[in-house]
């Protein structure tokens, strides 16, 4: 008994230490975004001036706009491309499927800097002007493998007759795809899209090499600002952390609530 208790105590301490280690820097940053002075180490009092500055700063606003726009577009395109590719692969022959999935894994293991320089050289040799379009293309490219990787296992678990059953009941192949296949692999598509979105939002290396024409995302902007310490970065980061936290909470809580509502409905209707 005593051994168990000490064991539990140690594991709790370990867990708390881990959490502190991971979250203390973030909390520290959040707290200092409300500091009244410029100092990043000495607390001088509460103020929201850095938030005010953030919202009045045009370059920051523009960077946020580009970051979100690129992330949304890259997520949409890479999710569509990745899902279609995964479905195609699941129906192709074993050898082709193995080759393509291995090629698909390569860019994820490759260091970002290699991909970045490769992309930069490619765009230069094609004579494309660096800017918003090149950044978007690059983001779609490095996001797609993550979608494929997330959708493939869901397809493997699918009943092989299910698409046939839909077509047997009069659905065209497209209807079968939309009404039967997609709803069942939806969790895989969703997690693929979420990973694509986060990969795109926090990408620095690749974006830095392929953008131009004054188009900057948040990472590039923060990098250029970090030489002159400025708490507006703290404010911006705090807002991003809050958004991510809210989104994550929603993603995890909404399905639980939905399931509960559904169960309640069934048990109510079941009483006849």
């Amino acid at each position: 008994m005593i051994k168990n208790k000490t064991g539990k105590f140690i594991s709790n301490v370990y867990l708390i230490a881990m959490l502190i280690f991971m979250y203390l820097p973030i909390i520290y940053m959040c707290v200092f975004s409300f500091n009244s002075s410029r100092s990043l180490t000495r607390w001088t009092g509460f103020s929201t001036q850095w938030y005010e500055r953030l919202f009045s700063d045009y370059t920051i606003g523009e960077a946020v706009y580009y970051t979100v726009l690129v992330a949304l577009l890259a997520t949409i395109f890479s999710t569509i491309i990745g899902t279609i590719t995964a479905i195609g692969l699941s129906k192709s022959r074993y050898v082709i499927r193995e080759i393509i999935t291995n090629i698909n894994d390569l860019p994820m293991m490759n260091p970002d800097i290699v991909t970045a320089i490769g992309m930069m050289l490619l765009f230069a040799s094609l004579g494309l002007e660096k800017g918003f379009m090149t950044m978007l293309i690059a983001h779609i490219t490095f996001c797609t493998p993550y979608v494929i990787l997330n959708v493939m296992p869901k397809l493997r678990g699918l009943d092989p007759n299910i698409a046939e059953a839909a077509m047997d009941l009069g659905a065209t192949p497209f209807q079968a795809l939309i009404q039967v296949i997609v709803p069942q692999i939806a969790p895989g598509i969703m997690s693929g899209a979420l990973i694509a979105f986060t990969m795109s939002i926090d990408d620095f290396v690749i974006s830095y090499f392929v953008t131009g024409n004054g188009v900057k995302n948040i990472s590039i902007l923060v990098y250029s600002m970090s030489k002159r310490l400025n708490p507006t970065i703290n404010a911006l980061s705090t807002i991003m952390v809050s958004i991510v936290t809210i989104v994550l909470v929603l993603i995890n809580v909404v399905p639980v609530i939905n399931a509960k509502m559904k169960n309640k409905k069934i048990s109510e209707e079941g009483n006849y």
């Binding site: 009943d159 007759n161 046939e164 059953a165 077509m167 047997d168 009941l169 039967v180 069942q184």
Partner: peptide, 18 residues
């Protein structure tokens, strides 16, 4: 298949789980 006046009961049912 979707234009044939034939319907099938599959070996492992192939019901739509969603």
């Amino acid at each position: 298949p979707y234009k044939r006046e034939i319907n099938t009961v599959f070996q492992r049912y192939a019901l739509f789980p969603h």
